[in-house]
């Protein structure tokens, strides 16, 4: 909902037409989130439908302009000051699943798997630092773009820290209990999928 709320928040500064709004959004987010005009207008249509925005009656230059309503302003304040989906939703990271499976496969060098991902992450950080360097060298500094880059740096850095943590934990587990258990187990349910009645709510949750 970042686009919807972002556009709404910009309208809080004054009435805009669609293309102007697209440009304002892109400039303010350092070009990190490009929008197409059709997407902007469909978002505006929904904002109008929900009573957060009204179409301005004055059309001096022929372009439709949009204006925020009081309800819209309240919604912007709610978005800015209360954590929403961006604070609670943790995107599915495939890496832990890959490492967990690698651990169960005989003959897999899990340390090499960990290192391959660590090397790739460091290369990503080097690329992000090169982008930051470009930003420092440019004439106009763009704090929004710099913070967006910083956020990417923190995300990749935390992945490397998790890999370091995982490597140490795996090494200790292997020291303490020898090889980790792997191989196909025969105590799992037999042929095919379990019948619906046997599936647990957790299964259904996981499948979603």
């Amino acid at each position: 909902m970042t686009v919807r709320h972002g556009l709404l928040a910009i309208l809080g500064e004054g009435a805009c037409h669609g293309y102007q709004l697209k440009q304002e959004f892109e400039v303010r987010t350092g070009g990190s989130w490009p929008l197409n005009v059709a997407q902007v207008y469909s978002t505006l249509d929904r904002l109008v439908r929900d009573g957060l925005v009204i179409e301005d009656s004055a059309r001096s230059d022929g372009a439709r302009r949009y204006r925020i309503t009081e309800v819209g302003r309240a919604e912007v304040a709610r978005w800015l000051y209360s954590p929403g989906v961006e604070a609670s939703a943790v995107g599915r990271d495939e890496l832990p699943t890959k490492i967990a499976i690698a651990l169960t496969l005989p003959g897999t060098d899990v340390a090499a798997t960990v290192q391959a991902h660590r090397r790739a992450a460091i290369a990503q950080l080097q690329e992000l630092n090169a982008l930051k360097r470009d930003e420092h060298r440019s004439e106009v500094s763009d704090l929004g773009w710099e913070l967006t880059l910083d956020a990417a740096v923190f995300a990749v850095k935390s992945r490397v820290q998790w890999l370091d943590h995982a490597e140490a934990k795996i090494a200790r587990a292997q020291r303490e209990s020898g090889a980790l258990p792997y191989g196909l187990r025969d105590d799992l349910p037999g042929r095919g999928r379990p019948r619906a009645a046997e599936r647990t709510p957790g299964d259904a949750e996981a499948r979603r």
Binding site: A111, Q115, R118, R119, I122, A123, Q126, E127, N129, A130, R133, H136, R137
Partner: peptide
């Protein structure tokens, strides 16, 4: 990258990082 006293791997920056 070092492990147990050995250099096991390295990552070379694809772009110059000079400031």
């Amino acid at each position: 990258f070092l492990r147990d006293g050995r250099a096991i791997d390295e990552s070379q920056s694809q772009r110059p990082l000079t400031t």
